[in-house]
């Protein structure tokens, strides 16, 4: 009888232990095992970016990572972006700029945009669009998203 694997990892700065099947993706583990449902399943094949998380300092699509690969890694999800009830500047800019409609893609966009601004505090529109090419949005037409990232860049520099 196949058995589950015990995995020890760090999620949003806290040590987490979980049991998973080796075939389960990190996205399935986050949502169905750990209960962190902020990361969304869109396409489940790496195209849409709704499941974007930070994996050892680099953004990845968590649908294309096995849960067992999380052992010993540092994972950052959308749940770790705000500080308590204080929104991160990227979140505030998305909210105030109405850079979302249905909201399914938004956690992925925010995690990816935050990662961009942490390594490139003042990106051009071209850089923003290419960095976010792996995140799909079927509502906004992207314009408000790009403007929200530009707004967040200003907010983060002023902070």
């Amino acid at each position: 009888m196949p058995s589950k694997t015990h995995v020890q990892t760090t999620i949003n700065g806290e040590q987490v232990d979980f049991l998973c099947e080796p075939r389960q993706s990190l996205l399935e583990v986050l949502r169905d095992v750990i209960g962190l449902t902020g990361s969304k399943e869109g396409c489940n094949d790496g195209n849409c970016g709704a499941c974007t998380v930070v994996f050892d300092g680099r953004i990845v699509t968590s649908c294309l990572v096995l849960g067992v690969e999380a052992a010993g890694k540092e994972i950052g999800t959308i749940e770790g972006v705000a500080s308590g009830s204080t929104l991160h500047p990227v979140q505030a800019a998305f909210l105030e700029g109405a850079a979302l409609q249905c909201g399914i893609c938004t956690p992925g966009f925010i995690v990816a945009s935050k990662a961009l601004l942490e390594q490139n505090p003042n990106p051009t529109e071209h850089e923003i669009r290419f960095w976010l090419a792996n995140n799909l949005c079927r509502c906004t037409g992207y314009d408000k998203i790009v403007r929200a990232v530009q707004d967040a860049a200003v907010r983060m520099q002023e902070a």
């Binding site: 790496g46 970016g49 974007t52 994996f55 680099r58 953004i59 990845v60 699509t61 294309l64 990572v65 990816a112 961009l116 290419f130 960095w131 976010l132 090419a133 792996n134 995140n135």
Partner: peptide, 8 residues
């Protein structure tokens, strides 16, 4: 791919 794919 895109940024996320290039991460892996």
């Amino acid at each position: 791919g895109g940024t996320q794919i290039q991460g892996r």
